[in-house]
Simulated scan of single mutants.
Amino acid sequence: MNKEYVEQLETKIKEYEEVILEMSAPIIPSIVPDTILVPITGILLEERFEKIRIKILSYIQTHDIETAIIDMTDITLDKIEQIGMRELGNEIHQLTDAIFLMGVEPYYVGLSPQLIKEIVTTGVQIKAESFSTFQSALKHLMKKKGFVLQKASV
């Protein structure tokens, strides 16, 4: 293989990695103003979690965001084997602190019972509100902000 071909392959790999990151942690504006939802999917690795953290913080920096809802519904114990529970706890702790430092309130949703058990057993501290589902977090947030959802009359 020649050098030019290898460089083209490396460029393609970087492009694909960016596409995968975008798909595995999209930032979705919520119906609640100034709120984003970030569903995290796929196998978690330390480097990947770092990229997700940078992506979230960059988005917060360029948008007027008050609340970030991090959805961990897809994250199961088998998807964190490579990172380990302690390291995942560390990553969640760093993400939470960074979001707070940007003046945004983090919420976590979708933590599985197995994941919660591991978090508690390893002594990981998550200083953020958590909810079982995105819907319950939105209901709480809407009530907190004084919003009422009403059916539209036709």
Rank of each mutant, 00 (worst) to 15 (best):
Q82M: 10
G42W: 07
L44H: 03
T76S: 10
E18R: 15
F49S: 07
I70N: 01
A25G: 06
L45K: 10
L37A: 07
K79P: 02
L44C: 06
I60K: 01
Y108I: 15
I40W: 00
M72E: 00
I83C: 05
V38G: 06
V32Y: 00
I40S: 00
H93P: 00
V104M: 09
T96V: 08
P33A: 06
I83F: 12
E81N: 08
A25E: 01
L37M: 14
I83M: 10
L45E: 15
G89P: 04
I40F: 04
T35D: 00
G110C: 08
H93T: 12
P29K: 13
N90I: 06
S30A: 13
I43T: 12
I36D: 00
E18S: 11
E91C: 15
T96M: 09
I60R: 02
G84A: 11
Y107P: 05
I80D: 13
I43M: 06
Q82H: 10
L21D: 04
L95P: 02
L44I: 09
I28C: 12
Y108D: 02
E17A: 07
Q94V: 12
K55S: 13
I75L: 10
I28T: 03
I99K: 03
I40L: 04
T41I: 15
P106C: 11
I60G: 04
T35I: 14
I65M: 02
M85D: 05
K79Y: 02
E22A: 15
L95F: 04
I54C: 08
Y59Q: 09
L95M: 11
L21Q: 08
E66K: 14
T41M: 15
E15Y: 10
T67N: 13
T76G: 04
K14I: 07
D78Q: 14
S30H: 03
A98W: 06
I20K: 13
G84Q: 11
T73H: 06
L115P: 07
L21N: 14
I27E: 01
I54K: 13
K55L: 10
E47W: 06
L44T: 00
Q114K: 12
R86I: 05
T96G: 12
P106R: 06
I36Q: 00
G89I: 03
I70D: 03
F100I: 15
L95N: 06
T67A: 04
G84C: 01
G89D: 08
I40R: 00
Q61T: 14
L115R: 01
G89S: 10
Y59N: 07
V19C: 05
I54Y: 12
L101E: 09
Y108L: 14
S112P: 08
I83V: 12
E87L: 13
Q94N: 14
P33C: 03
T41S: 11
S24F: 02
L115H: 02
S112A: 14
Q82G: 04
I31R: 12
I20G: 14
I65K: 00
G110W: 07
S30Y: 05
E46F: 10
Q94R: 15
T62N: 10
G42Q: 08
A98V: 05
E18M: 10
E50T: 11
E105R: 04
V104K: 09
P113F: 11
T41L: 14
E22W: 12
T62F: 09
V19T: 11
